[in-house]
């Protein structure tokens, strides 16, 4: 049996529409947030979970962590049904919402951790060991006695992570953990997650819009759209499917105009030069460059693959999300 098994998970929300003129009662519509979703995750996997806003990612996390009850389907995490055996279940998981705090705003974070220990009933020895390990790994020492409200966003996220890992969960849900963080904090956070996964075999389900997070951390990625799973596999496989276009940026000596390019090439002025978006399947790169050379003296030319965000955007477009 797999560590996480979801079968036919379905969740519908009733949304009240704005009242239309001449109608006494508001109309209600039912929106399917999840539409019979199936997947399994093995112990120790690091899985990225992506999809546009409103695809149902958060709903999945809320179902798997026992906050919501589904309308249909079942799920088992480590043998437990989250929404039926909520208390036993949440003892073994940790959840970090990037935009929501689980620590206490006005008190030193150490006091928050202390209270969390009592809430989770963590044995004293385990707590000591775990706290010192996390304090070191997340470099919390210098601000353990500072109230949460005085911490920077990066420090706060580290504290949140520590709070959700204190009871040694086997499964960690991360919802947009890097949102708003600076580059240094992001890198440090990714390193920490990798390390935690390697050391304790913690299974991680990471929801994010930051593709760099996925690329750096996840061996596997699931794409969700309109409540359905659209892709499940390795990130390179996903990219290869949509990575059909290349970008050339170039600058001419003087102000030479671009030659007429074949259909399927999109060009735009960029600074003093041009940016051309094309598909090598339609026009081979060498042929395109030869064409460009004909129009003038090229001073500078770079060719590059498409930005990962553009790829994902193209993919969402193609999947009609």
């Amino acid at each position: 049996m797999a560590f996480i098994e979801a079968e036919g998970l379905t969740k519908t929300f009733t949304v009240r529409k704005k009242r239309e003129k001449g109608r006494l009662l508001r109309e209600k519509t039912r929106v399917k947030a999840l539409d019979s979703l199936n997947f399994t995750i093995e112990k120790g996997e690091l899985v990225g979970y992506i999809g546009p806003n409103g695809a149902g990612k958060s709903t999945t996390v809320k179902l798997l962590s026992g906050i919501l009850t589904p309308d249909g389907g079942t799920a088992r995490v480590n043998g437990l049904v989250p929404w039926e055996q909520r208390r036993q279940h949440v003892k073994r998981i940790g959840v970090v919402f990037g935009q929501r705090s689980q620590l206490w705003w006005d008190v030193p974070i150490l006091d928050s951790f202390d209270l969390l220990r009592d809430i989770y009933q963590v044995p004293e020895a385990d707590y000591r060991r775990r706290l010192s390990e996390l304090t070191e790994a997340l470099r919390l020492e210098e601000f353990l006695r500072t109230p949460l409200r005085l911490l920077s966003l990066g420090q706060r996220m580290r504290a949140e992570l520590c709070g959700s890992l204190l009871h040694g969960p086997e499964l960690l849900f991360l919802d947009e953990p890097t949102i708003g963080l600076d580059a240094v904090s992001k890198l440090a956070l990714r390193d920490f997650l990798k390390q935690e996964n390697a050391r304790h075999g913690t299974t991680v389900l990471l929801t994010t819009h930051d593709m760099e997070d996925i690329a750096a951390l996840c061996s596997r990625v699931m794409v969700l759209g309109h409540g359905r799973k659209l892709f499940d596999g390795a990130l390179p496989d996903l990219l290869q499917r949509y990575d059909t276009r290349r970008i050339i940026t170039l600058r001419y000596d003087g102000d030479a105009a671009l030659p007429d390019l074949p259909a399927g090439c999109a060009c735009a002025e960029e600074g003093e030069g041009y940016r051309i978006d094309y598909s090598p399947d339609q026009i081979p790169t060498a042929k395109l460059i030869a064409l460009l050379q004909g129009a003038g003296n090229i001073r500078e030319l770079t060719a590059q693959p498409q930005n990962i965000d553009h790829l994902i955007a193209a993919m969402y477009r193609e999947m009609d999300l």
Partner: peptide, 12 residues
């Protein structure tokens, strides 16, 4: 504010 979610994530 969604704070109730946080409570549901704890074994109490």
């Amino acid at each position: 504010s969604g704070q109730l979610d946080t409570l549901l994530l704890r074994p109490r």
